[in-house]
């Protein structure tokens, strides 16, 4: 089983040297799998993420509905932006994976299909910025997984259960902690980064236009990456969020239970029921039998 609390994960990181090492050690012990096999599986996941980024950046991925596609290439082809090239890279990569997912491409659901762009966006940009060796990148992915496991135990990871905060919010918390470990921050700083990211997205509604994983989901992967980077920057500078991650995660779960069903993936609230959202939905999503 994954760690059920960040406190427990932090204690294990003390023994193992990092959150990522603690996550790998627990997975070895629980599954009876060798450490090298776990590294190989994580490396495969990383490669699927990298391939999805590359595919999305070609700009050819178009969803069946026609609602999304082409924005990742738009961002990537622009000259270095306001916050520097690595920020652009994160945004473009996150959009790329979101667009590939919407176009029925191959992705890693980490934590979910709809939020599959946040983690690759942040991980690839930060590892390029730091020239990180592959093994550290793989360990950062394990760190992200351990943070996601804590959220799964204390709240939820699906939009249907707790709104978009549980998908993009969780992805951002996972990515922020991974970025901090990749940059050489302490396990405690990685926890603050996760808290800082999740607090910034608390209450985020899941309101997909037409019920599709496209608008606003694709763009939210990019804005989720931006929140994760902001959180990592603060944590690495020594900013400590006063509420521990375990409590922030539990608060997310409790906010999620308070969200009305209309804001939990039913397409009955938020952006989905705006005049334009409804028009896009009727235009883009014929029923399967109407197609024939």
């Amino acid at each position: 089983m994954a760690y059920g609390s960040f406190a427990e994960l932090l204690a294990a990181a003390d023994e193992n040297g990092s959150l990522g090492e603690a996550a790998v050690a627990r997975e070895c012990a629980e599954s009876g799998t060798a450490r090298t096999d776990i590294f190989t599986r994580l490396d495969v996941a990383l490669r699927v993420m990298e391939d999805a980024v590359a595919e999305g950046l070609t700009g050819t991925a178009r969803s069946r509905s026609g609602l999304t596609g082409g924005d990742a290439a738009r961002v990537a082809s622009r000259a270095p932006g306001l916050a520097g090239p690595h920020f652009d890279r994160a945004i473009a990569a996150a959009l790329a994976v979101g667009e590939v997912n919407a176009a029925m491409g191959r992705i890693v659901a980490a934590p979910t299909g709809g939020a599959s762009g946040v983690l690759p966006g942040v991980l690839l940009a930060v590892s390029e910025r730091l020239n990180a060796p592959r093994e550290k990148l793989v360990l950062a992915l394990a760190t992200a997984g351990a943070i996601g496991g804590v959220i799964a135990a204390r709240a939820a990871l699906s939009g249907a259960a707790a709104g978009c905060q549980a998908e993009i919010g969780s992805g951002a918390a996972m990515a922020a902690a991974a970025a901090v470990e990749l940059a050489g921050g302490t396990p405690a700083q990685a926890g603050h980064a996760a808290s800082l990211a999740l607090q910034g997205l608390l209450g985020l509604a899941c309101d997909p236009v037409g019920g599709l994983v496209e608008v606003p989901c694709v763009a939210r992967n990019a804005t989720g990456s931006a929140v994760a980077l902001a959180a990592a920057e603060m944590a690495l500078a020594g900013v400590a969020f006063p509420i521990p991650f375990d409590e922030v995660a539990a608060a997310m779960g409790s906010v999620g239970r308070s969200l009305p069903p209309s804001l939990r993936e039913t397409a009955l609230g938020g952006l989905a029921v705006t005049p334009t959202g409804k028009r896009l939905a009727s235009r883009s999503s014929p029923r399967i039998d109407e197609e024939r």
Binding site: A109, G113, G148
Partner: peptide, 23 residues
């Protein structure tokens, strides 16, 4: 849910867009 592995969070590898409606 009661025996979550690292690879339930970092995974599955799937064709998008939706774990419920597609995978």
């Amino acid at each position: 849910a009661n025996q979550r592995s690292l690879f339930d969070i970092i995974g599955p590898v799937m064709i998008g867009p939706s774990s419920s409606h597609t995978a």
